[in-house]
């Protein structure tokens, strides 16, 4: 069954001039079709302004499409009666770790979602415990969020969503404001949720290294989906990625350059181990 399905979704922002009249309408999302299976790890790539964040906000009914339809777990996001069910089944983690933590103590923040859902007290404690374990933050449960590093804060935010027992988590550039260590921590936690807890993950990012483990990569530009496929399929098209000014992992880029120079390397090399292996094989054969 589909976790998330979208059909011909259009979303427009209106820009007003000084007199309050609409002077420009910008199509942030322009006819997007999506099909995300349960248990998938899907990455959405694109530069700022490509519409990826706007699309993400459609996946748990923070925004509803102007045209077209989004279904989350079979429920139409325009159906206002189902809005809390939708938000419970598709949780969302945002970019700025400071602006999404509500509690003044880690465990209280994680309990915030279940409190809103009306979960009984005893069960809230169980959920908080297991969610903090899932992101490896149990040690910090009595800490103030202000004392944590960026990566730790994001893991608390993820735990806060996990405690709502969602089937799917949408992460909107969760690593954009973190340092390399923080990025690694967060991606590790997200992959574990996908693999161990079997939660569907939609990861929005512009860091290429974060998407190589995804089942499926979607590239957006100007509100449209321009590429779709496995990471290997996507990264075989170095030229196209470069043309929409996206990065390519360094190993992929180096492989591409070497191939251009005449070395017989396969397409779509993703990791440095793969590249080293392929180069060694090539060397032995010559």
């Amino acid at each position: 069954m589909n976790m998330i399905e979208a059909s011909r979704v259009v979303y427009e922002y209106a820009h007003y001039d000084e007199d309050g009249n609409i002077d420009e309408i910008k199509r942030a999302v322009d006819g997007v079709d999506l099909d995300i299976q349960k248990g998938d790890f899907v990455a959405i790539l694109g530069h700022n302004g490509s519409g990826k964040s706007t699309l993400a906000k459609h996946l748990n009914a923070i925004l509803t499409p102007r045209e077209g339809t989004v279904w989350v777990d079979g429920k139409d996001t325009k159906d206002e009666g189902k809005i809390w069910e939708i938000r419970q089944s598709a949780g969302m983690v945002f970019q700025n770790p400071d602006n999404q933590i509500i509690g003044t103590i880690v465990e209280e923040d994680v309990g915030f979602g279940p409190e809103n859902m009306g979960v009984p007290t005893k069960e809230i404690w169980e959920r908080v415990e297991e969610s903090l374990k899932a992101v490896n933050m149990v040690k910090y449960r009595h800490h103030s969020p202000n004392k944590l590093s960026g990566g730790q804060k994001q893991r608390v935010a993820i735990a806060g969503v996990v405690a709502m027992h969602p089937q799917c988590i949408v992460l909107d550039e969760p690593t954009a404001m973190l340092d390399p260590n923080g990025r690694k921590e967060v991606i590790r936690a997200v992959r574990a949720l996908n693999q161990v807890e079997d939660i569907t993950v939609v990861l929005i990012t512009h860091y290429m290294e974060e998407v190589i483990y995804a089942d499926k990569v979607i590239v957006m530009d100007e509100g449209k989906i321009i590429m779709q496929g496995t990471p290997r399929e996507i990264f075989s098209q170095v030229e196209k990625l470069k043309s929409c000014r996206l990065d390519v992992p360094q190993a992929t880029l180096l492989a591409y350059e070497l191939k251009q120079a005449g070395l017989k390397l396969p397409d779509g090399i993703l990791t440095r181990e793969e590249l080293v292996e392929e180069l060694c094989r090539l060397k032995q054969n010559t």
Binding site: Q250, A251, R272, E273, L275, V276, C280, K283
Partner: peptide, 20 residues
């Protein structure tokens, strides 16, 4: 110390170690 060299550095060292 929690820092990483560029990816290229790792690749080059691995290649060197493999005899290239």
């Amino acid at each position: 110390v929690g820092l990483a060299a560029p990816q290229v550095t790792y690749i080059m060292h691995a290649l060197k170690a493999s005899g290239l």
